[in-house]
Design a protein around this nucleic acid. Sequence first.
DNA 1: CATGAATGAGGCTTCATTCAT
DNA 2: GATGAATGAAGCCTCATTCAT
Lengths: 197, 197, 197, 197
Amino acid sequence: MDKNLEPKTKRGMKTKQKLLDAAEIVFGEKGFHQAGIVDITQHAKVAMGTFYTYFESKEAIFRDLVMSMQRNMRREIKKGTIGITDRIELERAGFKIFFRFLQEHKYLFRIFRQAEFVDVELHRSYFETFSKGYISGLRESMEKGEIKTFNPELLVYSLMGIVDYVGMKWVLWEQQEISDEFIDELISFIKDGIGKS
Amino acid sequence: MDKNLEPKTKRGMKTKQKLLDAAEIVFGEKGFHQAGIVDITQHAKVAMGTFYTYFESKEAIFRDLVMSMQRNMRREIKKGTIGITDRIELERAGFKIFFRFLQEHKYLFRIFRQAEFVDVELHRSYFETFSKGYISGLRESMEKGEIKTFNPELLVYSLMGIVDYVGMKWVLWEQQEISDEFIDELISFIKDGIGKS
Amino acid sequence: MDKNLEPKTKRGMKTKQKLLDAAEIVFGEKGFHQAGIVDITQHAKVAMGTFYTYFESKEAIFRDLVMSMQRNMRREIKKGTIGITDRIELERAGFKIFFRFLQEHKYLFRIFRQAEFVDVELHRSYFETFSKGYISGLRESMEKGEIKTFNPELLVYSLMGIVDYVGMKWVLWEQQEISDEFIDELISFIKDGIGKS
Amino acid sequence: MDKNLEPKTKRGMKTKQKLLDAAEIVFGEKGFHQAGIVDITQHAKVAMGTFYTYFESKEAIFRDLVMSMQRNMRREIKKGTIGITDRIELERAGFKIFFRFLQEHKYLFRIFRQAEFVDVELHRSYFETFSKGYISGLRESMEKGEIKTFNPELLVYSLMGIVDYVGMKWVLWEQQEISDEFIDELISFIKDGIGKS
DNA sequence: CATGAATGAGGCTTCATTCAT
DNA sequence: GATGAATGAAGCCTCATTCAT
């Protein structure tokens, strides 16, 4: 019964993308449960029925959205940190790209946060997947003696918490442009915290 | 025209509290939107209609709950940090009380985070109220030269992010007892980050 | 199982009357279905439970109310038309008393009209009881040759319709004092309609 | 933000009409407050949810119904009295059409009367709108000397009262066919009342 | 592929009535 | 008698999903 919902034509691909873009905004603004399929289709300027041509359910588009945002975000970070080896500089560059991405997708974290109340598995797996690579990177740096030795998992969750909350406050609420200086200040705190004197 | 929903008898007060306690568990376990009024009343072992003797709506009990948890939490922290003057020790003590409180109210953060999708204003005001006192405390410590000079707001949101994420991971997911050593490790990272060398 | 709800003490009688008075206003203002028992008890300044000491149900108090207003109204008319024999003068006097009564009980007809949607039998029987005496009076006048010969039932319903609508418009809506001249104008129309030239 | 509830297809228009027709019967038989949405949809042989595709609420369909019946009724009267100039004949023709319409829409008045307990404004404005044209017609006739000079508003409310009560008694209760002779008798009373000798 | 009407389970809320104090 | 808390059936409405065009 698994209908194939992958669009076969270029027109179909565009429609699907329109729906995903709309979902990002609508879920971000109203929240998953407050958002209706009609909100999404109206925003995407397609008929209600069209939604089910591309997605099996409301949960399905949410999952698709989370995963695609996650993918894009990680791609950006990867792309932007190529060639950097110093740990602190890696963090700095990562943070900068991160916040740049966030400015364009200001609902990113709000959507991720929702996952906790939509699909617990998705939510946890997002964090665990993401943290895994991060942790091993940090562990390596610790082994190389670049940074102090800590419980790396504790460190990663702390860093993720920082980014989430800072993003919430300054990008989502204050709608501020995040300057490089701002990130530098944040990094200086982290640097002292984890770096070797 | 808002009917008076304050209980007038001792029996009424007990029932209202039963409902609040039930709501904490039910909202924490199922999430605000998945939770039904019946879930709450069944858990509290009262009839469905009784709910509306004390609360105007599902939103109303949620707000009441958030605000009362917030009040209790702050009371605990205040009580437990009396007499401590050293900033780092203040943070350490605060963190310990915090996490102890969290263990007893496992769903505390889960409920706070939900507020974002139930009542945006409540959510924001919760953070802004909480951070206000925190910020002025930190600013004082900076002025006294106890800790480095940072943007104190940035610091507070970072710390709140850390606590939230660490709580989510270890209290909610791992269901671990948070040991004093664990907190000490967390504090050591923060100490290096903010403390003077 | 017919509990005896008749008050036995003077205090009880007063409470029951307070409830009836409150019901007249509340049913009149909000309508039977919009009105709640609490509206009535609050208006009467008694506790909710007290209501059921005197009335079996919401329908019951409504019926009591309709019947008692009806009784009072007819008593007034009877009292005020004693000794009048001329048909037209009888109508004139009746109308005057009627509208005087209406000024003091401006929701009278609104309450009677509601009966149609609360208790059809009550509603019909009210009209049929009331019209019966009226009809026989008119028939007599016709036989005596005082007024033209008409279908007396048709006449009575017409007259009741007039009183109801005029009362609705000028007493209830316009909240006007009904002057004797006003009634005289109305009667002059009726007189020409039914009287002999 | 009010969603567009106007049907966009022919099928939609038919469904909406089915609902209105059903509502006329159901509201007429059970009364607004006793009638449930399910009663209406079952009668219309559509699913419950369909109701909300076309109407915002129970109140909304009631209002729609009242206004559409009113419109139709006035259209009929207008159509049927074209070319008649004599006032009494105008009234006679009007009454005949009126009662004919009433026979086909037995619940017409029952529904109009309910408006008082559903939407007071609607009720009042219905009468005021209707009476306005009627009044100016009568005033003209008075000026032309066709009928006696009265307070025309008083006259109109009297006439409306007559029609309402007579309709209630003979059409709704007795379920009688209203004969032309019956109307003639009614008119003869009115004629003597308002006509010049 | 696209459209929008139709469906009905599910949930919140009201409120007449009962009951314990 | 009086009080007000407790009860739960009933009803309105929402909205994700399906279906006919």
